[in-house]
């Protein structure tokens, strides 16, 4: 299969989607039905920011497998996808829990034993792959990666001589995921989504994907969206399902709402970096499979930590 989706297929797939103005709100336990085993899944946010953690949590609980996941920078969400068996292929520029904790032992275990693939591109290359996908063109030209071994490992990218200047350029192929998972601060029941603060690559990702599932801190009325349409970053017709999940990025952060829940992150990292197999199983059993609901998962993180993260998150507006 070609690394780039043929344009005919891209257009045909989009025409087949129901893009009407309709309410798309579903329950968290129902979102897994929008994702099939083996799908390519684009993940919004970056590192520990606006990670669609509740969606990833729901996909793991539904025992999805063989997902090919792409994200500009992937953190503990990548660990969980590998560790649970939901994914065996991650496309990203950086994969570890966070700089504070060194190298992820979960990533290392899966990649070094050949259980899973970590496909590395430069950060800008990932961005331009989503951009090309969003633009409906098969590639974008960039200059980074040339001369490096990152490029030597990526036969999917093509070096060319520029037809205008004769310079060397690199063409990176469009990335059009089957599904995009994105967490936002607010959206209406139709899917008009507003993102505060850092938007990372989420707009390109949403427009590139063939299906978009949103989680939102809260659902607001369409009237409220219309009062500030300049804040709307993703239009309703690109969105296929919406779940209202307060603290849907926990234990990661959501701009202006909460900072990362660092005690939980530290607890997680200690558990899995000590034992990437047993520690991961323990974490998944306790925090992913056992809770009856996302609220119960938050309960396990603990009220005090959730409140501390919220207070810190809102302080962005004090400065």
């Amino acid at each position: 299969m070609s690394v780039v989706k043929p344009y005919d297929k891209l257009r045909k797939d989009l025409s087949a989607r129901d893009r009407s103005l309709r309410e798309k709100v579903v329950a968290l336990e129902d979102v897994a039905s929008f994702v099939r085993d083996g799908d390519s899944v684009g993940i919004g946010g970056s590192t520990m920011s606006r990670t669609p953690m509740a969606l990833i949590w729901a996909l793991i609980r539904a025992r999805r497998k063989s997902l090919s996941c792409s994200r500009c920078i992937i953190s503990s969400d990548g660990d969980l996808l590998f560790g649970s068996g939901a994914s065996d292929h991650v496309i990203t520029s950086w994969f570890s829990q966070g700089i504070l904790w060194g190298v992820s032992k979960v990533m290392r275990h899966h990649v070094e034993t050949g259980k899973a693939r970590f496909e590395e591109w430069s950060h800008l290359a990932i961005g331009m792959r989503f951009r090309a996908g969003a633009m409906g063109v098969p590639f974008m030209p960039i200059r980074p990666m040339l001369g490096s071994d990152v490029l030597a490992q990526r036969p999917e990218a093509k070096e060319i001589d520029c037809p205008f200047t004769g310079e060397k350029l690199l063409l990176v192929p469009a990335l059009n995921p089957d599904v995009a998972l994105i967490h936002v601060q607010r959206c209406d029941p139709y899917g008009n989504a507003q993102i505060d603060g850092l938007q990372f690559m989420d707009i390109d990702l949403a427009m590139a994907a063939n299906k978009v599932i949103l989680t939102t801190e809260r659902i607001v009325s369409n009237d409220q969206i219309r009062r500030a349409p300049d804040q709307t970053k993703i239009p309703f017709f690109a969105v296929d399902a919406i779940v209202e999940v307060p603290y849907g990025s926990a234990p990661h952060e959501c701009y202006g709402v909460y900072e990362p829940m660092m005690k939980h992150m530290e607890h997680y990292v200690e558990l899995v970096n000590k034992d990437p197999v047993g520690g991961m199983k323990e974490y998944l059993d306790k925090y992913v499979f056992a809770p009856k609901s996302w609220a119960e998962f938050l309960d396990l993180i603990g009220l005090e930590e959730v409140l501390t993260a919220s207070r810190a998150g809102k302080s962005i507006y004090d400065a």
């Binding site: 520990m48 500009c72 700089i99 989503f130 938007q199 690559m201 701009y255 900072e259």
Partner: peptide, 20 residues
């Protein structure tokens, strides 16, 4: 900030924009 992608990076900045 614990990374260069956290909200703490944006405090008193002139502009926030996409990563690309």
């Amino acid at each position: 900030p614990p990374s260069t992608n956290d909200q703490r990076c944006t405090v008193r900045a002139n502009m926030v924009l996409g990563s690309a």
